[in-house]
């Protein structure tokens, strides 16, 4: 073994975790080579000095701040549980209403159907063209209804945006407090992340979506909001979210951001970092 080969084994020899099992030939070479002994000794001395550097103690401020933060989070979690318990109770109380309402609706539907059969004129002979036209008409109507539904949803969201930021923030926090929000609650949070003009509200909405990062619709919502977002702080948080949720669908958008000249340098760096994590 020559000096170069022996020195390649030095990292193992210098690490007490691996020194015992390191290459025997390297040890033999080291024992008989003054140059390698000098090199090894200098490295060993540097490491000893590094290991002997004292570890300073933090001030009591660190512990105080940590426990204050933990207490705040615990209170927040406790209030989330209390709100969830109250809502569960309210849901149970109104259970009968929910059971009876569909039953009444079904009864009315059945009555209407019977009345229709009795009072309707005799059916005209139908042709294939008529049935196709009828089916198309139904499809058109369904599309219109869906479009109206979306419009109503967006209108409601836009109306919410007329409220003061504090009120919108309260709305987001209420959604966040639900341990198992329904799809409507999740959609509201995604809508706030996408459309709300307040940075605070968008950040809170993103925080509230973290526990639901396992849902594809949530990841898709954050991914869809990313190109629209202009605030670097929110952008970085969104990127962290996508990296933490390991969403491979985010790779293309992150690559684009990582080289974007218009994006803030912190955003580009966060995107590059996230790409390595995906």
């Amino acid at each position: 073994m020559n000096c170069q080969n022996a020195r390649e084994i030095f990292p193992e020899l210098l690490d007490h975790r691996t020194a015992a099992t390191a290459h025997l030939e390297a040890r033999t070479h080291l024992a008989g080579c003054p140059d390698c002994q000098r090199e090894f000794s200098a490295l060993s001395q540097t490491l000893a000095a590094l290991d002997a550097m004292p570890n300073p103690a933090p001030t009591p401020r660190l512990r105080q701040n940590f426990y204050a933060m933990l207490e705040e989070e615990k209170n927040s979690a406790a209030s989330v549980r209390a709100v969830a318990a109250r809502e569960q109770h309210a849901r149970r109380a109104s259970l009968w209403r929910w059971v009876l309402s569909p039953a009444a609706a079904a009864a009315l539907l059945a009555l209407g159907y019977l009345a229709g059969i009795r009072s309707a004129p005799a059916p005209l002979p139908t042709t294939t063209d008529n049935s196709v036209a009828l089916r198309n008409e139904v499809v058109d109507l369904r599309k219109k209804v869906e479009a109206m539904g979306q419009l109503v949803g967006y209108t409601a969201l836009l109306q919410q945006q007329q409220l003061p930021a504090n009120a919108r923030l309260r709305g987001v926090l209420t959604s966040a407090r639900q341990e198992n929000p329904d799809q409507g609650g999740i959609n509201d949070l995604i809508g706030s992340l996408l459309l709300d003009p307040s940075t605070n509200v968008r950040l809170r909405a993103l925080d509230a979506l973290y526990p639901h990062a396992d849902q594809e619709v949530v990841r898709a919502g954050v991914l869809a909001s990313l190109p629209r977002e202009q605030n670097p702080l929110v952008q970085v948080h969104m990127i962290d979210f996508l990296a933490a949720s390991r969403d491979p669908e985010a790779a293309a958008a992150l690559e684009k951001l990582s080289v974007s000249e218009t994006a803030d340098s912190s955003v580009r760096e966060a995107a590059r970092r996230a790409l390595t994590e995906l």
């Binding site: 570890n55 103690a57 940590f66 933990l70 989070e73 979690a77």
Partner: peptide, 16 residues
């Protein structure tokens, strides 16, 4: 969440 207090006590010194 209290379990994080124990982790803090174990690790904040070396981390600092």
């Amino acid at each position: 969440l209290d379990a994080l207090g124990e982790l803090f006590e174990r690790h904040h010194g070396p981390l600092f």
